[in-house]
Nucleic acid binder design. Sequence first.
DNA 1: CATGAATGAGAGTTCATTCAT
DNA 2: CATGAATGAACTCTCATTCAT
Lengths: 206, 206, 206, 206
Amino acid sequence: MSRLANTEPKRKQIVEGLMTVMATSGYDGATIPLIAKAAGLTSGLVHYYFDSKQSILVELVLHLVKIVDARFQSAVTSDPQSELAAYIDAHLALGTGANPKAVACWICIGAAAVNQPEIRLIYQEATENQVTILEKICEKVLRAEGRKTRQKREIALGITSAIEGSYRLLVSAPDMIPKGFAAPTVKAMAFGLISSQPLTSDKRRT
Amino acid sequence: MSRLANTEPKRKQIVEGLMTVMATSGYDGATIPLIAKAAGLTSGLVHYYFDSKQSILVELVLHLVKIVDARFQSAVTSDPQSELAAYIDAHLALGTGANPKAVACWICIGAAAVNQPEIRLIYQEATENQVTILEKICEKVLRAEGRKTRQKREIALGITSAIEGSYRLLVSAPDMIPKGFAAPTVKAMAFGLISSQPLTSDKRRT
Amino acid sequence: MSRLANTEPKRKQIVEGLMTVMATSGYDGATIPLIAKAAGLTSGLVHYYFDSKQSILVELVLHLVKIVDARFQSAVTSDPQSELAAYIDAHLALGTGANPKAVACWICIGAAAVNQPEIRLIYQEATENQVTILEKICEKVLRAEGRKTRQKREIALGITSAIEGSYRLLVSAPDMIPKGFAAPTVKAMAFGLISSQPLTSDKRRT
Amino acid sequence: MSRLANTEPKRKQIVEGLMTVMATSGYDGATIPLIAKAAGLTSGLVHYYFDSKQSILVELVLHLVKIVDARFQSAVTSDPQSELAAYIDAHLALGTGANPKAVACWICIGAAAVNQPEIRLIYQEATENQVTILEKICEKVLRAEGRKTRQKREIALGITSAIEGSYRLLVSAPDMIPKGFAAPTVKAMAFGLISSQPLTSDKRRT
DNA sequence: CATGAATGAGAGTTCATTCAT
DNA sequence: CATGAATGAACTCTCATTCAT
């Protein structure tokens, strides 16, 4: 077996160790020994597989993006409206019990992006990917509803904001949030926002 | 007589020092020496005015809440709809250049709330206050539009999510956000959400 | 009034502040602000009346010596044996409730003598004074009992050891010591030690 | 395989580093860098082997107790009287050059017990163990001399006081103490104290 | 591959002391 | 006299990182 044979599983273990610890202790509170322990390894090994603590964080961000993507991909996508609903559900279901660790980490990553340019870049890239996907879905919905698509990006950004903001409240003010609140409300906002767009042609619709 | 007691200004200096440093370095990156330097003081003096680093953070949270409150209070509030618009503007204008440091700090505070229970409590309290204010405004708007008010809290939480999420994007993915995007979009989402509420139903109720 | 008018009372206040704090917090735990507070003054004033923290300790040692001296002086001194008993009582009564703070301080001073030569010197001087007084009493007792006085200094040192050791136990292992244990036991040791000395002349005494 | 685990020797090195520094600088003067230097290590490593400075002190107390125990255990114990003498010699020989560092530390530990409850507890426990051992020896001596054993604990406490007090003088007033003074005097006091106990039955012994 | 001992820089915090007022 | 703000050095302790084994 080559040396690489065992490399990926180990790296994943470590990344998930960081996720676990970070979800309860934040990024700075996630020390190498704690990460190692959560991963069932020793601190020395962590640095064998990763150059630095920050490089684990980089990989974690990529990992989290995959988790959400996977969930959305598996959603059934018949008509545009249910596709949009499925997208929102895929994201917000994470917070409502499905993967609270991932959400807590995501909040910490946003803060880490403040002072770590490398993290900011990949956070931005990941977000850009999501917005692009969402933009396309929104475009389809707008078309299906006979509305102008000019603002599709603003709409996608608005929905993304609402999702990210829901994460914030779910993580940092959990006591305020009624169970099952986030997804329906964000969906209502999303469709409300779409409905506020002008129709493509008033004549035909009259 | 002793030296002129100057406690409050000094504490404010320190709090603003934390805000400045935290906006670029995060909470853990905001070391006491850096805070002191930003405030033009010595590290020793920081601990003369504050028991601990965390207690500076506590005061900063209160300080940030005051900034937003002050901005909103000064807004003219004629009809409910413009009051709601003014509320959203007061919050989001901060991010669009008015006080980017405050917004960056707010993001870091949310992350700090993850692993510092005391911070979580005051974050939650501050958020609860905002939601309560917003809830009342929403109720007025709903009444004015002849809609049921049952969901007013969910609506307030939804708008709050959208605002918080906009902060996130403004801070952590600034390159993605077109100038002046946030406020109009959040307003459209807010009014879209309100419009999705059922009418009180004048017929049956007559 | 001259400037000195108020000096001595203030210094005494400070010394007693140190005694109070030191009895529960040790010498290093007795910070200037704590001493000042215990004395009802401010930290600045403490340094107005004393050059340094150590100089307060120096004065405290002198103060403690006076306390014991005063107590012994007031004892009735009829025959040598009761004088010795009175001496021991004067010292050990301190520990058994009369002045536990003084005793706790005395223990701390012994430790401070380890690393502060100036304290060692005055501790030694104070102890030497006590031993000298005790030596004279012992000489009288030995004479009265018709015993050789050659070892009077060793006897005085032995009794002093027993007293100092009782302080240690009273302060550092208070739960082990039955009420009223120390004085009778030390007296018994003292007289036992004296009885172990050879008689001055067996012939005459026959 | 990792580096050869060498935990116990390293911990011992550190404990002895504390002993060395504490003997001349006291507990508070024994800073981690000084302890590390005395042990030939770096400060970081000290905290690798011990959670806190206090935990080193805890281990030092146990270490000191062992030193005395070892010395006493090795003493030949034929008749009760020489066993008592051996016990006193084992303790006091330490001060007279055999291990002056240990004695100086012991004095500082008593002072540390004043304001550190955990230290007080183990000081008390160590002392209680010694008193219990001594009590049994005294009981044997009392029996052998046909005296009542009721006061055996008070006697043991008295002898312990005399030993502890001798330490004090040896450490804090070394110039006053003639060489070889302590052990004989304490022995004389001990036997004098025992002789002061009533005989078990005067009638039978006639 | 794997360990965990070792390092060294730097964190938060305390405190005797000074001094402007 | 008296205050308490201000300083700066030193403290204990933490931690990412390295490396001998």
